Amino acid sequence: MTGDRPPTRHVVVMGVSGAGKTTVARGISELTGLRFAEADEFHSESNVARMRSGVPLDDAARWPWLCDLAGWMAARHAEGVSTVLACSALKRSYRDVLRQGPPNVEFVHLAGAAELIRDRMGRRAGHYMPASLLDSQRAILEHLDPDESGVVLDVALSPDDLVVAAVTGLGLPLGAAVSGR
């Protein structure tokens, strides 16, 4: 921390594809001023091609991507900028890599019924992640452990309600009160 600059906050909105991570993370950003990033935009072309063809990523394909995300958050922290990242962060080990970036990372886990999420995935347009990979994501999903900072929210709530519940649950300040827009 430099001078009297307030500490940064770093939030990862996590869950399986189709849970609403991007929508909720953007909403948190709009309400709080945290800088938004979409983890999907950090994937290599080969990772995107693999997922587009219906092949799930293995850990070897994920590690460089997760390190890039941790690096992005660490760089924003160094600038005094708070962040909110939409990222699956399905396993504890993936979240551990993300925590190697800035000094403190909090999580918003969007959880819910597979049927509801599968229905949402079937209705969205322009995303490379096919609904057929939902089962593989659910199979590796590890819920937040008690020692992980965060909240778990039900995807059955409306996007606006999820945003408010996340901001309230994490005690995030509204607007420019969070450092570094």
Rank of each mutant, 00 (worst) to 15 (best):
A19C: 15
K21W: 10
V24S: 12
G27V: 09
I28L: 05
I28S: 03
E30P: 00
L31D: 06
T32M: 09
T32P: 04
T32V: 02
G33L: 03
G33V: 04
G33N: 09
L34F: 07
L34E: 06
R35V: 13
R35W: 09
F36V: 01
F36L: 05
A37P: 00
E38I: 07
E38Q: 14
A39Y: 03
D40L: 11
E41W: 01
E41C: 03
H43I: 01
H43N: 02
H43T: 00
S44W: 02
S46K: 09
N47C: 07
N47S: 15
N47Y: 08
V48P: 13
A49F: 02
R50N: 13
R50K: 15
R50E: 14
R52F: 00
V55W: 08
P56H: 07
P56I: 09
L57T: 09
L57V: 01
D58I: 14
D58M: 10
A60F: 04
A60D: 11
A61I: 04
P64F: 07
P64M: 07
P64C: 06
W65Q: 00
W65M: 03
W65F: 05
W65I: 01
L66K: 07
L66W: 04
D68W: 00
D68Q: 12
A70D: 06
W72H: 10
M73R: 08
A74D: 14
A74I: 00
H77W: 01
A78W: 01
E79W: 04
S82W: 04
S82H: 05
L85P: 03
A86W: 02
C87W: 04
S88L: 12
S88V: 08
A89S: 14
A89C: 08
A89N: 08
R92P: 06
R92T: 12
S93Y: 01
S93T: 13
S93N: 08
S93R: 15
Y94K: 10
R95Q: 10
D96T: 12
D96E: 15
R99P: 14
R99K: 10
R99D: 07
R99M: 15
G101P: 01
P102A: 14
P103Q: 09
N104H: 13
N104M: 12
V105W: 02
V105N: 04
F107I: 00
F107C: 02
V108F: 05
V108R: 02
H109R: 08
H109M: 11
A111C: 09
G112C: 10
A114K: 12
E115I: 07
L116T: 10
L116R: 12
R118V: 09
R118C: 04
D119H: 15
R120K: 10
R120W: 11
R124V: 11
Y128R: 03
D135G: 15
S136F: 04
Q137C: 01
Q137D: 12
Q137T: 12
A139M: 04
A139W: 03
L141Q: 04
E142G: 05
L144F: 05
L144K: 08
D145W: 04
D145T: 14
D145M: 14
D147Y: 11
D147R: 14
E148H: 07
E148D: 11
G150S: 01
V151D: 08
V152A: 05
L153R: 01
L153M: 09
